[in-house]
Nucleic acid binder design. Sequence first.
DNA 1: CCGACGCGTAACCAACAGGTTACGCTTCCG
DNA 2: CGGAAGCGTAACCTGTTGGTTACGCGTCGG
Lengths: 106, 106
Amino acid sequence: MMLRDEQLSAGQIAERFVISRPAVSRHLRVLRDSGLVRDELVGRRRFYVLRAEPLTDLTDWIAGLTRPAGWEHRLDALETEVYRARRDHRDRAPAAPSPRRREDTA
Amino acid sequence: MMLRDEQLSAGQIAERFVISRPAVSRHLRVLRDSGLVRDELVGRRRFYVLRAEPLTDLTDWIAGLTRPAGWEHRLDALETEVYRARRDHRDRAPAAPSPRRREDTA
DNA sequence: CCGACGCGTAACCAACAGGTTACGCTTCCG
DNA sequence: CGGAAGCGTAACCTGTTGGTTACGCGTCGG
């Protein structure tokens, strides 16, 4: 998936869309200002990579919509353990920008 | 949480917002047409209740953003079990506030 | 039966979103 | 050093969003 598995430059990202480069640049700025991507300037190229951590708040909120009141507390506890294990591992794993399989473009 | 745990009428929902009632009504129509709420006309009141099932696609998509490629397969499998258990229980549980569903009016 | 209530939609308007072209800044290569 | 490349922003324009008020329809109670 774009930017999750590999960093891409603004031009490479723009190539995958039919809209103009300045339009893509505007979107990237919104994403950067929201903290959803991180950018790094290398020469005249600016590389972007996904920062998905802020999405956990969103996922939690949506999960609150689907979670019936009162029930499934035990399953919730288990899910929390799963989540914690995942986060613990992520904190230890090195952030290697190692390009892998290319995801579909929406 | 509003509409997840209890059905509310349009007026009761509108009371919880500062915007005008017609504005709330417009939002409710968008939610109804999207399948995110279900409404039932009782006399001159229209009651709404959340239908969160369509959100699972969204949650899955967002999870795909946060899931690093390759890793956490075992945790994913566990999470799938949690999800399945939850769904199995939901399919068996009686739909407690069972208002009869009315077709869209639009 | 009539007035009140609940509530949805039409029409209007302002703000915003999201595209474009033009331009400018920085970096880099010949 | 100058031209090319990469890329971000300004300015502009159009369509959409999202609020408002006014109004109308269906239901209900006196």
